[in-house]
Computed example of a mutant assay.
Amino acid sequence: MRLLRSTRHPNITNQCDTSFHRQAARGIILNGEDILLLYTECYHDYSLPGGGVDESENFQQGLVRELIEETGAKNIRNIKPFGRYEEFRPWYKDDFDIMHMESFCYTCEIDDDLGPNKLEPHELENGMTPMWVNIYQAIRHNENTIANSDKKGMSIERETFLLKLIAKELIA
């Protein structure tokens, strides 16, 4: 899968720090200029639905499971690779210093109606909600959050980069 971008958080300076590798699958679901995203109230941002791939899954299986859990998507089909975003960022727990995160992004289609989602407790706590959003409004919103909010999470720069690339390559 093509590498879209590789980033290293500026606080990572020591190559010898302990790290772990996390792989995630993320879905790109478009309807014209609208895109299915997750709004997270706690961080005041929009992100692509998706998440960690379990050891017993391939990326497409993990994507389907995550889309159903987070958005209630039905009849997920025509899954095609879009690209991989790699990042190295500080880890917040004591067991490791660095997380090496790879996000494997796929375009796909779903049925128009969404079923009930099955968000995890921390996702509910953070106020995560699936919604269709105009992609250009989502980009502006995330850019505003990056510029003006102390609440922003570490993933917003990845998500905003991906939204801009999706708009450029798949919509424009």
Rank of each mutant, 00 (worst) to 15 (best):
G32K: 07
G32R: 06
G32S: 03
G32N: 04
G32Q: 05
G32A: 03
G32W: 04
G32V: 03
E33Q: 09
E33H: 11
D34N: 06
D34M: 03
I35V: 10
I35N: 02
L36W: 02
L36G: 08
L36H: 01
L36S: 05
L36F: 01
L36V: 07
L37D: 03
L37Y: 02
L37S: 04
L38E: 04
L38T: 04
L38I: 12
L38K: 06
L38C: 06
Y39G: 07
T40N: 13
T40R: 13
T40H: 12
T40Q: 11
E41V: 09
E41K: 10
E41S: 14
E41D: 14
E41A: 14
E41R: 12
E41Y: 08
C42Y: 15
C42I: 13
Y43R: 13
Y43F: 15
Y43L: 12
H44T: 10
H44Y: 10
H44E: 11
D45R: 11
D45N: 15
D45M: 11
Y46G: 13
Y46D: 08
S47W: 12
L48Y: 11
L48S: 08
L48T: 03
L48I: 09
P49C: 06
P49M: 03
P49N: 11
P49G: 06
G50S: 09
G50A: 05
G50F: 00
G50H: 01
G51F: 00
G51C: 02
G51L: 01
G52I: 00
G52S: 04
G52R: 05
G52C: 03
V53Y: 00
V53H: 00
V53W: 00
V53T: 01
D54P: 12
D54T: 12
D54A: 09
E55K: 10
E55A: 11
E55F: 15
S56V: 11
S56L: 14
S56H: 15
S56Q: 14
E57F: 13
E57N: 08
E57V: 08
N58L: 05
N58Q: 14
F59P: 01
Q60K: 14
Q60T: 12
Q60W: 10
Q60I: 07
Q61M: 09
Q61E: 12
Q61G: 03
G62E: 05
